[in-house]
Simulated assay, not measured.
Amino acid sequence: MTDWTEPGVFEVAPGVHRIPLPLPNDGLHTVNVYAIDDGDGVVMIDAGWALDEATDRLEASLDALGHGFGDIRRFLVTHMHRDHYTLAVALRKRFGTRIGLGLGEQPSMERVLSRRADGQLANLVVWGAQDLAERWRALILPLDAKASAAYEAPDEWLTADTVVDLDTRVLRTVPTPGHTAGHVVFVDAGSSLLFAGDHVLPHITPSIGFEPARADLPLGDYLDSLRLMREFPDMRLLPAHGPVADSVHGRVDELLKHHEDRLEATVDSVAGGTATAYETARRLGWTRRQRRFDELNLFNQVLAAGETAAHLDVLVRDGRLAASTVDGVVHYSATLV
């Protein structure tokens, strides 16, 4: 099988091309964006990270399709993480290209534009990870201004009522909160295609709630959004990270099972004596290799703490754990059966 990260232009359906773009120092290495024929122009699903190498790669790819940046009619962006959004902003400054983004991203966008991009610091304290918060502050705050400068508000906020009529197809916007509060996917029912962004990924599970304005119950939102995909006919999966896959339903079932197992492991950890999200995260295994928490780098430790808190909060909602706050830190405990 061809390595999905290899550069090039790959037709995944008539009039739809996958374009892998590079990411810097990222475990994923690559993000897929999709160019959809629209008459004498193209519509892009996601944009990539605003990097010189990614910009050059996208320009060369469009040239291979007989287009240039000026032929992009609009960017439809699945969510506001910088590997999906910021190159759209950079190209809009040059070409005036319109950008659409899910309405649920508005609170996080407002925080970013007001230079309050790092919502994780306060959360880390609530999760009992004060030492992690101090290291995170030292790493991330110097980068906040530069990161925020790459952002601008979209031209259009996309909702469940947003339907995009193209030359030969219709795209339906479907809100799928979880990975971020405003994540959306685009359904091409006529061609049985799902432009899934980071909602359904073929080989990995997306992070949950890593954003400036975190939702109250991001994992609950994500599980509901996964089940929503089951209400559509099965489609071909066009993900942002990973190869194209034949079945959305098959991967959704795997992701739901993964989180069921993770919830069980989280309950067992609390029953074994962990009290905070941070303590629980340190006891659980991470990645498919079940790596120890201390083996993760700082960024992934922050992700792990947030993931664990998301699972704990769902368990509290479901009555399987109890929660109380002591000196600003949430403590979890087993409930009596």
Rank of each mutant, 00 (worst) to 15 (best):
T205F: 12
D198I: 09
W157H: 06
Y151F: 14
A160Q: 11
T176E: 00
G197A: 10
E156H: 13
A147S: 15
D165N: 15
A153I: 05
P177R: 07
D198N: 13
A160M: 03
G209E: 07
A189K: 04
L201R: 09
D144I: 15
L143P: 05
A138C: 09
P177H: 04
P154G: 01
P218C: 02
A153H: 05
A196P: 09
L171A: 00
P175M: 08
H183Y: 04
H179Y: 12
L219T: 10
S207V: 13
F186D: 01
T162V: 12
S192K: 12
H203E: 15
I140C: 03
R137V: 04
V174R: 07
L143R: 15
W157T: 01
R172V: 07
R137C: 10
L143A: 10
I140Q: 15
P154M: 04
A147P: 02
E211G: 13
A181L: 12
H179C: 11
I204G: 00
D216P: 00
L143V: 08
H183A: 13
A215Y: 04
K146I: 03
L201S: 06
D224K: 14
L217V: 05
I204D: 14
H199I: 06
T173N: 02
P218Y: 00
D221L: 11
G190Y: 01
F195W: 07
D188M: 05
T205W: 11
V200R: 00
S225L: 02
I208V: 12
P154N: 13
A213T: 06
Y222L: 11
R227Y: 01
D167S: 15
L193D: 00
S191W: 00
V187G: 01
H203C: 00
S225Y: 02
L158D: 10
I204Q: 08
R137Y: 11
D144K: 14
E211Y: 05
P218V: 00
E134F: 07
A153Y: 10
V187C: 08
Y222R: 04
L139N: 15
E211I: 13
P212R: 10
P154C: 13
P206V: 12
T168L: 04
P202G: 06
E156N: 01
S225C: 06
A196K: 10
L139G: 05
S148T: 14
I208K: 02
V174Y: 03
F186L: 15
G178V: 01
I208H: 09
V185Q: 08
A196E: 07
T159G: 03
T168H: 10
I208E: 05
R169M: 11
R169H: 08
R172L: 03
R172N: 07
V163M: 07
D224I: 08
F195H: 02
E156Q: 10
L166S: 02
T180D: 14
V184Y: 04
V174E: 12
A149R: 14
A213C: 04
I140R: 11
D165K: 15
P175L: 11
D144Y: 11
L217T: 05
A150E: 13
S192H: 07
S225H: 08
P202V: 14
T173R: 00
D144T: 15
L166G: 12
A138K: 15
L158V: 13
D216W: 12
R135V: 01
E156I: 02
S192R: 15
D198K: 08
R172W: 06
G182W: 00
G182T: 11
L143T: 14
V174A: 02
F186E: 01
T168A: 14
T168R: 12
H179S: 10
T180F: 11
V164N: 02
G197R: 06
W136F: 11
